[in-house]
């Protein structure tokens, strides 16, 4: 019994220590003023790596999710004879919820795990240490561009996801199932509010992007520099990011849409 209490206490201490380390790490990364001349090319390279290279999975997923929404929406709404509202349903679902959340989950799996593995391997092969010994701070040179790139790329990916998803829903609803195109777009236009829906979804994706990128670079930087350590850090990145995204989504939704 005492052992269990002790191990529970140890677990608690480990979690607090890890949170503290990640907080100090974040402060260290953000405190450095980036030098535009050297920093900008590094940032562009990372935006390409985490953003542009994630486009394929985001676009394909967005298309299919939009198409599925179209099918499901039509099936349900046509029971009530209100299939014309399908455009509004697809747009609100994507812009408010699925766009930010699914993109963040895909982003954690595609880009976050790659960031963790890359940084972990750089640590294991002493590249980070050698950088330190050359008088170059790896937090600024390696970590900061990757963190900012994730932060910048994620909201853009979420917007692209929503746009492609709406287009996919239109393909199914209008082109295939024959919903009148005017009411598809018209209903969407009259019910989707820029500030309440689009901006709130955008804010969600900004928060998710920041959290996913933070978790990914911290897990890489903090990993045990062995192959087992890197694999466990990569797993943790995906698991923690997914849980954080889903948990934060509930909190943000409650704050944004919860005033009944």
């Amino acid at each position: 019994m005492l052992d269990r209490i002790a191990s529970l206490g140890r677990l608690g201490l480990d979690i607090v220590a890890s949170l503290g380390r990640s907080g100090r790490f974040l402060a260290g990364v953000l405190s450095g003023v980036p030098r535009p001349v050297t920093g900008f090319p590094l940032l562009v390279k990372q935006i390409y790596a985490v953003g542009v290279l994630s486009l394929a999975i985001v676009v394909v997923s967005g298309l299919f999710i939009g198409m599925v929404l179209g099918l499901q929406g039509y099936t349900i709404l046509s029971d009530y004879g209100s299939e014309a509202a399908i455009g509004q349903m697809i747009a609100l679902t994507l812009v408010r919820e699925l766009g930010p959340v699914v993109t963040a989950l895909l982003f954690a799996g595609r880009a976050g795990s790659a960031l963790t593995a890359e940084i972990g391997l750089m640590k294991a092969t002493e590249q980070l240490s050698s950088m330190e010994m050359m008088g170059v701070d790896p937090l600024r040179r390696v970590i900061a561009p990757r963190l900012w790139a994730g932060f910048i790329a994620m909201p853009i990916l979420a917007l692209i996801f929503s746009v492609v998803g709406i287009w996919g829903g239109m393909l199914v609803g209008v082109e295939w199932l024959g919903v009148f195109e005017g009411s598809f777009w018209g209903n969407m236009q009259s019910s989707v509010d820029f500030v309440d829906d689009v901006m709130n979804g955008f804010i969600k994706s900004v928060v998710f992007g920041f959290v996913c990128a933070w978790i990914a670079v911290f897990q890489g930087y903090d990993c045990v520099p062995t192959s087992a350590g890197i694999s466990s850090a990569t797993t943790k990145t995906v698991v923690y990011s997914s849980l954080a995204v889903l948990g934060l989504d509930f909190v943000l939704t409650a704050v944004m849409f919860g005033d009944f």
Partner: peptide
């Protein structure tokens, strides 16, 4: 200070030339 690590610790995404040029470019 210069330090030669046991593994060499070269930056794997840079060529030999760019690895040697790295400290010069930074400092």
């Amino acid at each position: 200070m210069g330090m030669l690590f046991q593994s060499g610790a070269l930056f794997t995404d840079l060529s030999v030339f760019e690895n040697v040029a790295f400290p010069l470019r930074v400092h």
